[in-house]
């Protein structure tokens, strides 16, 4: 009975299998990027970037209609311009990264809204805003999987410089010139994965599958590799849970997935060793040294 409820939807319906494949790809690609966003204290930056992508995608839609390619390219360009401009300003002026990023993404949104209203067309942008994880076509699935594959390879290449850049950037700059490579390479990965996420979950919620599993995993484990692994598992489990909830309770899938990840986060916050109650529940006696 329970097995039926858990597995039958995926056996019986192709759109559920496609949604599952999309969630798996996102968990493998976007979530590890989210772990580094969280550890670099850039969680909100991910949110700002997601907003910066929206006008680019809207422009692509305006010019070429509901074409996957145009919206993707538009989103990537808008995201990269904002991320790189913000990084450049932060490195060469007295403004910090958050301030310059806020400035650029607000500019980006305003430009997008301006162009959209000048054209005076009623856009069906719900797809971009809220995604369509249950209506992923072949091209979207290929795009998401390709970006996830690329992300995994890029993270493997950047791993060591990126880790040092996160906790001791001054040391990395003093031993090698890879600091900017790690920094900008990481920003590019953030943008790519946000674009990949918006096809499934929409620009507003794409950040959710990056940050929520990462935050939950941080509460449970202490080592970075375990944190990456656990975050991926949580993201995939939330994806499956959200898809099933959407199927059985007839609710929209995107928000259901993010809410499932949110539930894991709240539960971890209560119970995990690093959470609010976890440390107090540990009643074991202290050690000798």
């Amino acid at each position: 009975m329970i097995a039926d409820a858990l597995f039958a939807p995926f056996f019986d319906f192709e759109f559920m299998r496609r949604g599952l494949a999309g969630c798996l790809a996102l968990a493998l690609g976007a979530t590890p990027v989210g772990v580094f966003l969280l550890l670099r204290r850039m969680s909100l930056m991910g949110d700002a970037m997601a907003h910066a992508i929206l006008p680019g995608a809207a422009l692509g839609y305006l010019a070429f209609g509901l074409s996957l390619g145009a919206m993707t390219v538009g989103g990537i360009i808008a995201g990269l311009v904002v991320a790189l401009a913000a990084g450049l300003v932060a490195r060469s002026s007295i403004l910090k990264e958050d301030a310059s990023l806020a400035a650029f993404y607000l500019l980006s949104i305003a430009t997008g809204v301006m162009i959209v209203s000048l054209r005076g067309r009623n856009l069906d942008l719900l797809h971009v805003l809220f995604g369509s994880v249950l209506a992923l076509d072949d091209n979207s699935l290929l795009l998401i999987s390709a970006i996830s594959t690329l992300t995994l390879f890029a993270l493997a290449l950047l791993y060591r410089p990126l880790v040092i850049e996160c906790f001791d950037a001054a040391f990395l700059r003093s031993v090698s010139g890879t600091s900017p490579v790690a920094h900008y390479g990481f920003l590019v990965l953030v943008v790519l994965n946000l674009v990949s996420g918006f096809h499934a979950l929409g620009t507003l919620m794409a950040v959710g599958i990056m940050i929520l599993p990462a935050a939950a995993a941080r509460l449970w484990v202490r080592r970075l590799p375990s944190m990456l692994g656990l975050a991926i598992v949580i993201a995939l489990a939330s994806g499956i849970g959200g898809l099933l909830a959407s199927f059985h309770a007839d609710v929209p899938a995107g928000p259901a997935i993010i809410l499932a990840a949110g539930a894991v986060y709240l539960l971890s916050l209560a119970l995990a060793p690093g959470g609010m109650l976890g440390a107090r529940l540990d009643r074991r006696p202290h050690l000798e040294s």
Binding site: L157, V163, C166, F167, D168, F171, S176, T178
Partner: peptide
């Protein structure tokens, strides 16, 4: 200038001193 909340262990942190021998990979 160091972020001490980052999850990395003492051995790994000290081993980074060998960067010029082992590089990024």
């Amino acid at each position: 200038e160091m972020d001490r909340s980052f999850p990395v262990c003492v051995f790994d942190m000290v081993a980074m001193g060998l960067w010029r021998d082992i590089g990024a990979f």
